[in-house]
C-alpha cells in the first residue's frame, strides 16, 4: 500500500517535470542565444492551453487540438518576435525582461477578454490507466513524459547534427563571431524564439487536461519555471532537463511528506544551489553580467 503512493508520486513528479522542461527549455535557449528573459513564453503556454481546449470542445480530436495549441502559440510568438523583440534585441537584459512582462500581462488581459474569467476544464485525451507494480498509473502522464523525452532528443539532434543548430550553439558562445562570418543571426533568433513559443504552447496544451484552463495559469507557473531555469543554469539545455525533473520530484514527493512543503521546498533548494554555485548547476560563468 505504502509503495503505491510512492510510485504514483514519482510518475506525477515525472509528468510535472516534463511540463516544466518543455516550458523552461525555450526560456533557457532564448536567454542563451539572444540574452533575453522572455517572460511572454508563459503567455504562449496559456494560449496553447486555451486553443487546445477550444479546438477540443469544437471537434473532439484530442491530439489534433494539442497540435493546434502548439501551432497557435508558435504563430503568436512569431508575431511578437517580429513586432517587438526584433527591435530590442540589442538592449540590456532588464529592458527586454520588462517588455516581455508587458506582453505577458497584456496577453493575459486579452485572454480574459476572449475566454472570460471562469476556469474551464479540458478533457483528457487518453483516459485509461495501466498498472505498474500493482499501482494504477494514468497513461496520459506517461505520454507527457515520452513527449518531453522526444523533444529533448530532437533538440539535441538539431543542435548537434544540423548546421543551423551548430550556428545556434556557436552563437550562444559568441554571437558577434557568428555574425562576423556572415550568418544572418536574426534568422536564428526568430527560429529559436518561435521554437520556444511552440514548446511553451505544447506544454500548455498538454498540461490543460491536468489542471483547469484559466487566465492566470501562466502567472501561476512563473515561479516554478524560473526556478527550473535558475537551478539548471540559464542557457543550458541539459541543465534545464536535470533541474526540471528534480523540481518535479521535489514538488511531487515533497507533498507526500508534508503538503505545504511541496510548494516551498524547491525554492529552498534553489537558494541552496545558488549559494554554492551562483550560476546554477550547468550555467556558464562566462556570460556577461
Amino acid at each position: 500500500m505504502e509503495g503505491n503512493i510512492w510510485i504514483s508520486g514519482v510518475i506525477y513528479g515525472l509528468s510535472m517535470g516534463s511540463i516544466f522542461f518543455l516550458l523552461a527549455v525555450g526560456l533557457s535557449l532564448c536567454f542563451g542565444l539572444m540574452r533575453i528573459i522572455s517572460l511572454d513564453q508563459l503567455l504562449y503556454y496559456s494560449l496553447g492551453a486555451y486553443i487546445a481546449y477550444t479546438v477540443e470542445t469544437a471537434i473532439h480530436q484530442p491530439w489534433l487540438s494539442v497540435l493546434s495549441g502548439a501551432l497557435a502559440a508558435g504563430i503568436a510568438s512569431l508575431v511578437v518576435e517580429r513586432w517587438v523583440f526584433y527591435r530590442i534585441y540589442a538592449r540590456e537584459l532588464t529592458f527586454t525582461m520588462i517588455t516581455s512582462f508587458g506582453i505577458l500581462i497584456g496577453g493575459v488581459g486579452a485572454i480574459k477578454y476572449v475566454w472570460g474569467l471562469i476556469p474551464r476544464p479540458a478533457s483528457i485525451p487518453v483516459d485509461i490507466q495501466v498498472s505498474i507494480l500493482g499501482t494504477p498509473v494514468p497513461v496520459y502522464r506517461l505520454i507527457i513524459v515520452a513527449i518531453a523525452a522526444g523533444v529533448y532528443v530532437a533538440i539535441q539532434i538539431v543542435l548537434n547534427r544540423t548546421v543551423i543548430g551548430k550556428a545556434i550553439r556557436a552563437a550562444v558562445e559568441d554571437v558577434d563571431q557568428v555574425e562576423g562570418l556572415g550568418v544572418d543571426v536574426y534568422r536564428l533568433f526568430t527560429l529559436t524564439f518561435v521554437g520556444a513559443g511552440m514548446l511553451s504552447g505544447l506544454a500548455g496544451a498538454l498540461h490543460a487536461p491536468l489542471v483547469m484552463v484559466d487566465p492566470q495559469m501562466g502567472l501561476e507557473v512563473v515561479p516554478f519555471v524560473f526556478m527550473v531555469v535558475i537551478i539548471g543554469g540559464l542557457g543550458s539545455i541539459k541543465g534545464t532537463l536535470v533541474s526540471a525533473f528534480l523540481v518535479g520530484q521535489v514538488v511531487s514527493l515533497g507533498s507526500l511528506i508534508y503538503a505545504p512543503l511541496a510548494q516551498m521546498a524547491p525554492f529552498v533548494a534553489m537558494l541552496m544551489v545558488l549559494l554554492v554555485k551562483p550560476t546554477g548547476l550547468y550555467g556558464s560563468p562566462l556570460l556577461r553580467r
Binding site: P223, I230, M264, F267, L271, R289
Partner: peptide, 29 residues
C-alpha cells in the same frame, strides 16, 4: 547578504523565489 553578489539576471529571479517562499510561509507554514 546573499543576493547582491548575484548577476543581475539571477538577482531578478531569486527575489521572485523569495517572494514565493514568503507567500507560502505566511499562507501555510
Amino acid at each position: 547578504a546573499v543576493f547582491v553578489r548575484l548577476r543581475s539576471d539571477y538577482f531578478a529571479l531569486v527575489n521572485l523565489a523569495l517572494t514565493v517562499i514568503v507567500f507560502y510561509m505566511l499562507q501555510k507554514v
